[in-house]
Each structure stands twice: as structure tokens, then as C-alpha cells.
């Protein structure tokens, strides 16, 4: 099976708002796919629909050959999907260590992944006993990604990892995501086209709740007109 995730013509609602109106794409296994589009186009909602955090009323979400739409979010996540949300959602009453520990799905997950995580983000090791919110923005982002790595997730959904970070830290983040994509498939939502184009092999463009284009990233980079049309100036 080459596609780890298939999103088939989904229509999604958040409360009573019809946000996604026909989004359709596939995510090939073992690569990074970027969801692109303007602000409010529905990229974040697409990620939430995959996880069941937004209610999918029509269409199908197929993860590893299994229809997951309509299942409760915790069951979908437990199938092996890690989520790094917009604004990181670090738990402020938990220490850095606890923020990682809570993501364990089986006892000892964290101990097994400890070296992998700290090789990726050596900074975190120094702050294990700090509270989650005492970290800087970049460190919080690393923690959010690390949290998604604790359990054995074959798919990672990462929302806006570069948002609000300094360029140096963005470089570091790009390295880290590239490294972890060797182990899991990544779906990336990214406003910063430069970051997206450096990382992703495939792209999907979402416009006003519809998927309007998809393909190989290198084709998109060559097609300035398309970039201009859907993403504004690039």
C-alpha cells in the first residue's frame, strides 16, 4: 500500500459551520506532504477532520486502509497519528517531562524514545523540570513535536511549525522535521512557502474549503503563475 492516508471528498463542520466543502487528496507513505493555501482556506480544519476533531459529515478518511471518519478522536489517534497543533498547545500545568509522558500510549514509550527525541531536540533535555510555558516559543514548538513522537505514530500532522519563530530556529526546525520524516510520514500545514518547499515532496492546495491542486512540490516551484494565483506573492 503506497498511500498511508486517503482523504476522499470530505465535507467537514466545526459547530454548524460548513468549513470543508470537498477536500480530496492522498498522502504517499514515507514522505512529507504540504497543505498549502491562504489564511482561512481550511488547512487546519483538514488536519482536524483527519483526527475526528472536526466532524466529517460526508466523504471518507482512510488511514492505513481503515475508514476512520466518525470514530472518536482518541481512537483515531491511537491508531498511530501524532498531532502537533497550531499554537503548540503545550500543557501549562505540566512540566516538560510530563508533557512528554502524557503522550505515552504504552508504559515505557518515553524511555524507548528518549534518545531519539533528545538527539533531535537536545535543548529539551536541559529543561525537563521546567513548566511547559516557561520555555521560549521555539522550545515550545520542539516540545510539541517531541510530544507527537513519544508514541509510535506512523503519521504526523504538523500545523504551522514555523509560525512566530526566528529564522535561525526555523532552520533548526526544518532539520528536525526532515530527520523525523525518515521514520514517519508527515502532513505539514505551512504558511511559509519557503519552508514548505524545502521540506515537502508533495503538495496539496486548499482554497475556500476545496482542494484545488496537488502534485509534486518541484513542479509547483517551477509554476510561478500557480503559486501567485493560489498563494499570493511568493
Amino acid at each position: 500500500m503506497s498511500n498511508i492516508l486517503e482523504v476522499k471528498n470530505i465535507h467537514s463542520f466545526i459547530n454548524q459551520f460548513h468549513i470543508l466543502q470537498d477536500v480530496d487528496f492522498v498522502v504517499p507513505k514515507g514522505s512529507i506532504t504540504a497543505l498549502l493555501g491562504r489564511n482561512g482556506a481550511g488547512k487546519t480544519t483538514t488536519l482536524k477532520s483527519i483526527l475526528g476533531l472536526a466532524s466529517v459529515r460526508e466523504g471518507k478518511v482512510i488511514f492505513e486502509g481503515r475508514e476512520v471518519q466518525g470514530m472518536p478522536p482518541f481512537e483515531i489517534a491511537a491508531l498511530g497519528i501524532g498531532f502537533v497543533p497550531e499554537h503548540r498547545a503545550i500543557f501549562r500545568d505540566l512540566s516538560v517531562e510530563e508533557n512528554l509522558k502524557i503522550a505515552e500510549r504504552n508504559k515505557g514509550d518515553l524511555d524507548r524514545k528518549r534518545t531519539f527525541i533528545f538527539d533531535l531536540f537536545p535543548d529539551l533535555k536541559k529543561f525537563l523540570n521546567l513548566r511547559g510555558t516557561e520555555l521560549s516559543g521555539g522550545q515550545q514548538q520542539m516540545l510539541a513535536i517531541a510530544r507527537a513522537l513519544v508514541a509510535d505514530n506512523s503519521l504526523l500532522l504538523i500545523d504551522e511549525p514555523s509560525e512566530g519563530l526566528a529564522p535561525v530556529i526555523i532552520e533548526h526546525m526544518i532539520d528536525a522535521i526532515r530527520q523525523l520524516s525518515e521514520q514517519s510520514t508527515v502532513v505539514l500545514v505551512e504558511q511559509n512557502f519557503l519552508v514548505a518547499s524545502k521540506l515537502a515532496k508533495y503538495f496539496v492546495i486548499i482554497e475556500e474549503g476545496k482542494s484545488v491542486a496537488s502534485g509534486l512540490m518541484k513542479d509547483l516551484e517551477a509554476d510561478k503563475a500557480m503559486i501567485h494565483r493560489y498563494l499570493g506573492a511568493a
Binding site: L53, P73, F74, F83, D93, K101, A103, R147
Partner: peptide, 19 residues
């Protein structure tokens, strides 16, 4: 730990695979 995290952000806790 789950309670303390859930007080702040239920969706995120659920997205970690916790019922």
C-alpha cells in the same frame, strides 16, 4: 496528569489518543 492537562485543552489530550 491527564486531569491537569484536560483542564487546559481537552481536544489536545484527546488528540494524544486518551479517552
Amino acid at each position: 496528569m491527564i486531569i491537569r492537562a484536560g483542564v487546559q485543552d481537552r481536544q489536545m489530550v484527546e488528540a494524544l489518543g486518551i479517552n
